[in-house]
Deep mutational scan, measured.
Amino acid sequence: MATGGRRGAAAAPLLVAVAALLLGAAGHLYPGEVCPGMDIRNNLTRLHELENCSVIEGHLQILLMFKTRPEDFRDLSFPKLIMITDYLLLFRVYGLESLKDLFPNLTVIRGSRLFFNYALVIFEMVHLKELGLYNLMNITRGSVRIEKNNELCYLATIDWSRILDSVEDNYIVLNKDDNEECGDICPGTAKGKTNCPATVINGQFVERCWTHSHCQKVCPTICKSHGCTAEGLCCHSECLGNCSQPDDPTKCVACRNFYLDGRCVETCPPPYYHFQDWRCVNFSFCQDLHHKCKNSRRQGCHQYVIHNNKCIPECPSGYTMNSSNLLCTPCLGPCPKVCHLLEGEKTIDSVTSAQELRGCTVINGSLIINIRGGNNLAAELEANLGLIEEISGYLKIRRSYALVSLSFFRKLRLIRGETLEIGNYSFYALDNQNLRQLWDWSKHNLTITQGKLFFHYNPKLCLSEIHKMEEVSGTKGRQERNDIALKTNGDQASCENELLKFSYIRTSFDKI
């Protein structure tokens, strides 16, 4: 039985969820670079991206490699990797027998973001014989899940209580170790020597080791999670996991709180800001991140802002960003909400898709409305799209047979046209069989910064309504002859009103 693990408890099935942008060198404390989270699957090609990484700022997932063999891993080693800020997950990587050479110096898994409450997941690794993470000293947050690894031993010899604050939620089941077939031998045991430290858990006094050649490092209890030197002297209180010299914040392997210019500090002093819960960055760093993602459509890219001495992905609820200094300031009234469309555009074809934009005031991208039916549609669209004030790209209304009016965009005031449909149009209306009105132009103002209007096959939309939009939106004169079809717009509506004058002759039985 794995020490510190839980057996036999019912657990939810383990679901495996399925960018080499360097964020800056980590400095003297770390020998390499800070790398983003990685999802490495199918083959070993991307694994080489770990070569210079000291910190993975995010998670590391290595999974679904069915053609790899043990010899493929023999020359692979990433000794610079010290810390993973989120979680480490391995799933069905064939041929991998140990992690001792792959990650010989991995010391800390912070667990800032977890995989279903777990910071370390080893699942269905069919050839893994031992973990071998002999320098792993601290899992700051989260638990361990090690399950269905039929060859995995050296679990009962690990004292997880020396690595985690609590072992109650560890789930370590259905491994070879369960069948008591392992016969784990710690260093020196074969020669009758006791080389590794022994600890007591559940009444068992057991030597602690990761492999037959690597003991588990056990520091004096007084050192807590700070770690200790090879001689057993406690590291500085700002260290986490390990250090090369005692009581020196510049000799830590990793930091308990924050890293700044080669030393570990309790908090980031001005003019620095907390970033990702582990390091200090200056304003320029946060500003660069903001600008890199301002026009990016890459998933996970955030326009970072500053709030409460932190550089964070977005302002919290009730705050909006001051564009001059990136500071989050309290909103006066309802907060603006910028919604970034991942692929640059979004099609609204149902109430469900409209709900995804609920509360958005600025759309960074283009909207395509293609709704053919739905219950209580006008009210639903207004509830979900009615706060949109600005669209950076274009607005396209296409084959939306259920629409009679666009009044559900009740606050839309600006279409920038930074991206144009077919390279020309910022407003595009095609084949809307029941569209009769755009907006009530006596109450609604709309500016279209650039781009043209396109109207074709809107049989109940009168040309007068379209011409009014040209005047109000500032697009009059931009359109070419064929942009607004004269014969297919309003051709099934009563669009022309003329005053009919009647004269009559009164007659009676005795007068003409």
Rank of each mutant, 00 (worst) to 15 (best):
G32H: 04
G32R: 14
G37I: 04
M38D: 02
D39L: 07
N42L: 08
N42C: 12
N43Y: 07
L44T: 11
T45H: 11
E49A: 07
C53E: 00
S54A: 05
V55Q: 10
I56N: 00
H59L: 01
L60Q: 00
I62C: 02
I62F: 09
I62Y: 01
M65V: 05
T68V: 05
T68K: 13
R69L: 04
R69E: 11
P70I: 07
P70D: 14
R74L: 02
F78W: 03
L81P: 00
I84V: 03
I84S: 00
D86W: 02
L90C: 11
R92L: 15
Y94C: 12
G95I: 02
L96N: 01
K100G: 09
D101P: 12
D101N: 07
P104E: 02
P104Y: 01
L106K: 00
T107W: 06
G111L: 01
G111R: 00
G111P: 00
S112L: 14
R113F: 06
Y118I: 01
V121T: 06
V121E: 00
E124A: 03
E124F: 04
H127K: 05
H127A: 12
L128S: 01
K129R: 13
L131V: 12
L131T: 10
G132P: 01
N135Y: 03
L136S: 01
N138Y: 13
T140P: 07
S143F: 06
I146V: 08
N149Q: 04
E151Y: 13
C153F: 02
T157C: 08
I158K: 04
D159Q: 13
W160S: 01
I163V: 11
L164W: 06
L164I: 08
L164P: 01
D165N: 05
Y171S: 04
I172P: 14
V173C: 15
K176V: 08
E180R: 11
E181R: 11
C182L: 05
I185Q: 11
C186P: 14
P187S: 06
P187Q: 05
T189C: 12
K193N: 06
N195T: 11
A198R: 08
A198G: 08
A198D: 11
T199V: 12
V200C: 14
I201M: 12
N202G: 14
V206G: 07
C209P: 03
C209S: 02
W210F: 08
W210N: 06
S213W: 07
S213C: 14
Q216V: 11
P220R: 05
P220H: 05
T221P: 09
I222G: 14
C223V: 01
A230I: 06
E231T: 08
C234W: 01
C235V: 00
H236P: 02
H236I: 02
H236N: 09
L240G: 07
N242V: 10
S244T: 03
D248V: 04
P249Q: 08
T250H: 08
K251W: 02
C255E: 00
N257F: 04
F258S: 06
L260P: 00
D261A: 08
G262L: 03
G262P: 05
T267S: 05
P270R: 07
Y272P: 00
F275V: 03
F275I: 02
C280D: 00
N282R: 15
S284H: 02
F285M: 09
D288E: 09
H290I: 05
K294M: 06
N295V: 03
R298E: 07
G300F: 04
N309Q: 06
K310Q: 08
K310P: 02
I312L: 12
P313V: 04
E314V: 05
C315V: 11
P316M: 07
P316G: 02
L326Y: 13
L326W: 05
C335R: 04
